[in-house]
């Protein structure tokens, strides 16, 4: 077994409804999906977010798109129009979740998230100040 950050294996997107955030994580294939179903439990996600999430965490399996959907109650400091947080809509919580480390079998130990290639952006940005 190897420890990997969920980020190496999965995509993510977070959204808000009132004071509830949902975070979907997406596996690339069945092997990864099987691992995250086993490893990324609602309890682990609740512990990962600590004091940031005051309520319970529910998990839904969405096998048709190889995803898990986590619903985090009391996750947004009271909800968009009420919250004092800069990220009052919880847009960044997906990134926060995939920081979680999980145990993966050795067959997946070499999996890594592709590295961003922003050469195109650097060219544009450098051009702004030339």
């Amino acid at each position: 077994m190897t420890r990997l950050r969920l980020h190496e294996l999965c995509g993510y997107r977070a959204g808000d409804k009132g004071d509830i955030a949902n975070i979907a994580v997406f596996a690339d294939d069945d092997a990864v999906y099987e691992v995250i179903v086993r490893e990324v439990t609602a309890e682990r996600v609740k512990a990962h977010f600590g004091a940031m999430v005051t309520g319970g965490v529910l998990r839904y399996e969405v096998p048709n798109v190889l995803a898990l959907n986590f619903v985090l109650h009391g996750a947004l400091g009271g909800g968009g129009p009420r919250s004092l947080r800069a990220d009052s809509l919880g847009k960044t919580l997906g990134g926060a979740l995939v920081r979680l480390e999980i145990e993966v079998p050795d067959s997946l130990a070499d999996r890594r998230a592709p590295k961003p290639d922003v050469g195109w952006a650097r060219t544009i940005v450098d051009g702004l100040t030339d």
Partner: peptide, 17 residues
């Protein structure tokens, strides 16, 4: 793509069933 669409599928969704 499948990936862009599934990202939106679960956006602001609670119980997907």
């Amino acid at each position: 793509s499948f990936d862009t669409v599934r990202h939106q599928l679960l956006y602001e969704v609670h119980d997907p069933t």
